[in-house]
Design a protein around this nucleic acid. Structure first.
Length: 437
DNA sequence: TCTGGGGTCCTAGGACCC
DNA sequence: TCTGGGGTCCTAGGACCC
């Protein structure tokens, strides 16, 4: 139906979240680090201006960054998820349909003309800024891909005041803008495609838009063909099914890097047990059962003194299950026969596949799921609901270290987050304190 | 010393069927 | 013994996203 696609995307979301409850960070170079304080995953505008790239390992730039006055924070996903939910709920009061695309961005459908859509977007942006404290940028266009490009344009051009409106794909101004945008900044064009496209002489978003879509489909795929059509203003990418509570995924993955390497199967077994229980918790939350449990672990690809090892095993469950003990044991059994005791492992993970709907499955005659007869999963879920995540579990999942974050088991390999901010919006004892004088 | 953690979709190719 | 064309389903792997 007629109307425009609106993409609202927070500016430097994680860094902005850190600033909401610590206003002393405003206007300063702030970076947020990945788990184990490994890489930079978000930068404030000032940090970007210092030339810090996303994905940079923190240990490589730490000294220099300190000299430059950069403030680093460990990632505080509990805080970010809470502020994301507030931001999304404010925005959906301004437009009739919202598709939450990631923690910091959503598509909105505006069934109006350009002027009215722009007005609503400006008000929406103001409401999020004053009500939640997060600055967002808005791109408005006939298709999602073009709205994404418009959103980048809004972020890169302060004179747009955070809202870029591109109502007609064939407008000469838009054509001129696309000519200045490198092809790798187009949504759906990653590193590999960029290289191939460049070798064909396609360097800008405009050149991609003006390439024959049929040729693109033959040479690449229907996905990239859609990208070309979307750049021409033809919407091809449908909304994902509503992101309601209990939404189903097709696989569940829980994996982590360790703060120090693990040698030997005992430690790997502990980690697999912990990750299996977290995956299992997510499985029950979406009312699913799984029929395959994958376990994997690997050594560091950066350790040139040792052979790189990447081990992977699968257990097929005789009957689909959501029981933490069954799934934990399956992860352990999947890895055991493949394990190489000579490795120094820095990562392990558990993936649940072959997911089926628990409510549908148990109605099938003659097929009995192994459904957590002892209700251990349900008890663990209730403990988590009342007291927060990771308060109780089997084996290492039931052990708490002295650190505040929920990933800390106290094991030597447990995740490190040395610069964690307070979870102001989800923990009574970490609420922000304001002094008046 | 120290390099994240989730997901989705598409395609090619093999197995199997008529 | 030899042999066609076309379809479906499944899986592994690749590419992408934030």
């Amino acid at each position: 139906m007629p109307g425009l696609t609106v993409l609202a995307d927070a500016n430097s979301f994680f860094a902005s979240c850190e600033t909401v409850f610590d206003p002393t960070l405003a206007g300063k170079p702030v970076v947020v680090l990945s788990n184990n304080d490994g890489c930079v995953v978000a930068r404030s505008a000032k940090a970007k201006a210092l030339g810090i790239a996303n994905g940079t390992p923190w240990f490589k730039i730490r000294e220099r960054a300190r000299q430059d006055g950069v403030i680093a924070r460990s990632s505080n996903y509990e805080l970010y998820a809470s502020l994301s939910a507030r931001m999304m709920s404010v925005m959906r009061t301004y437009m009739p349909r919202q598709e939450i695309y990631s923690i910091d961005e959503c598509f909105l459908h505006a069934p109006w003309n350009a002027a009215r859509t722009a007005q609503a977007s400006i008000r929406m942006r103001e409401a999020v800024l004053t009500g939640v404290g997060i600055p967002v940028s808005v791109g408005i266009a006939p298709s999602k891909t073009l709205a994404k490009v418009a959103n980048h344009w809004a972020k890169d051009h302060p004179q747009e005041h955070g809202v870029t409106v591109w109502p007609r794909a064939d407008d000469v101004l838009i054509t001129e803008a696309l000519a200045t945008i490198p092809v790798e900044r187009v949504w759906g064009v990653g590193r590999r495609l960029t290289r191939t496209l460049q070798s064909m002489g396609i360097l800008t978003a405009l050149q991609l838009r003006d390439t024959d879509p049929v040729a693109i489909r033959r040479r690449f795929s229907v996905v990239l063909e859609s990208t070309v059509l979307e750049l021409r203003g033809l919407p091809c990418i449908p909304d994902q099914p509503a992101a309601a509570d209990g939404e189903r995924t097709t696989q569940i993955l829980c994996s982590r890097m360790f703060s120090t390497p693990i040698e030997g199967f005992e430690g790997i077994g502990q980690a697999l047990g912990l990750y299996a229980q977290r995956a299992c918790h997510r499985l029950r939350r979406q009312h699913g059962l799984c029929s395959q449990v994958h376990a994997f672990c690997s050594t560091s690809p950066f350790d040139t003194d040792h052979h790189y090892l990447s081990l992977h095993g699968v257990s097929m469950l005789p009957d689909p299950s959501d029981d933490p003990i069954t799934i934990g044991r399956a992860a352990y059994d999947a890895m055991r026969p493949h394990f190489d005791r000579h490795g120094r492992y820095i990562r392990a993970g558990v993936m649940l596949c072959g997911l089926v709907d628990a409510d549908v499955f148990h109605t099938l005659d003659g097929l009995e799921a192994v459904r957590d007869d002892h209700h251990l999963g349900a008890v663990l879920d209730e403990v988590a609901r009342r007291f927060g995540p990771a308060r109780a579990g089997v084996g290492y999942a039931g052990i708490r270290g002295s650190g505040r974050h929920s990933g800390d088991t106290g094991a030597p390999w447990s995740m490190r987050r040395d610069m964690l901010s307070a979870r102001c919006t989800t923990r009574w004892d970490e609420m922000a304190v304001v002094h008046a004088s």
